[in-house]
């Protein structure tokens, strides 16, 4: 049994559901963006804010510039969806979606990054919540361009939260586009997620 009542069984179920959700995302991207992408098997861990900061910094090289899109999702299972894409990938994405050979404008890049985030969050989170027999509400995403990998403010590290980190990586090899996805949920939400998984387990073994 890990902290916060989450057992290895819960983690296994969540991993399995995430595999389904990620597969769903890959198919949707191929359909909607006319490109074939692959997504890595999601990793799931429970951490605190310091651990989250270290995890993100480990996953994202600090020497690049990134577009970071954050989108909140609400419902019984709620949290924050993060999509991090490096500048070169974002430019390639802008080129692909806006069908231009030259460098796309900054506005096009922003729009393309938000569009891909919409698709990723809608497919992954919607599928995950669908599997958990609950509804989800998405909120307007915001994108910002940052240098380095300090996504979490230093002041935030002082706040103690128990966090579930679900992370995966998306790659469109042909278009040289790659990005990291982090799904974060904290504190009370973890208990609610556990209850949803318990229900799912009951349903599976009924």
């Amino acid at each position: 049994m890990v902290e916060s009542g989450f057992s290895e069984d819960h983690l296994d179920v969540l991993k399995e559901l995430m595999n389904i959700a990620v597969g769903n995302a890959t198919a949707s991207i191929a359909d909607l963006l006319q490109t074939f992408g692959t997504m890595h098997i999601p990793q799931i861990m429970i951490s605190d804010m310091v651990g989250l900061d270290a995890y993100i910094k480990n996953a994202i090289p600090e020497e690049k510039q990134y577009y970071i899109t954050k989108q909140l999702f609400g419902g019984i299972f709620s949290g924050e969806f993060l999509f991090v894409i490096c500048e070169n990938s974002a430019i390639n994405l802008g080129r692909h979606l806006y069908d231009v050979n030259q460098n796309p404008t900054d506005e096009d890049i922003h729009d393309a990054v938000i569009e891909l985030t919409n698709i990723l969050s809608a497919t992954i989170i919607s599928r995950l919540t669908e599997e958990l027999n609950t509804k989800v509400q998405f909120f307007v995403p915001s994108t910002e361009r940052i240098v380095g990998n300090s996504i979490i403010g230093q002041d935030e590290l002082l706040n103690y939260h128990k966090i579930i980190i679900i992370s995966t990586e998306m790659v469109f090899e042909d278009q040289q586009i790659g990005g990291k996805i982090f799904i974060l949920t904290k504190d009370e939400m973890i208990k609610k997620l556990k209850a949803l998984i318990d229900q799912k387990l009951e349903e599976l073994y009924a």
Partner: peptide, 11 residues
Amino acid sequence: TSLRLNSPTFY
């Protein structure tokens, strides 16, 4: 995208 995913898209 919105119709296929049956989900809102934002921009």
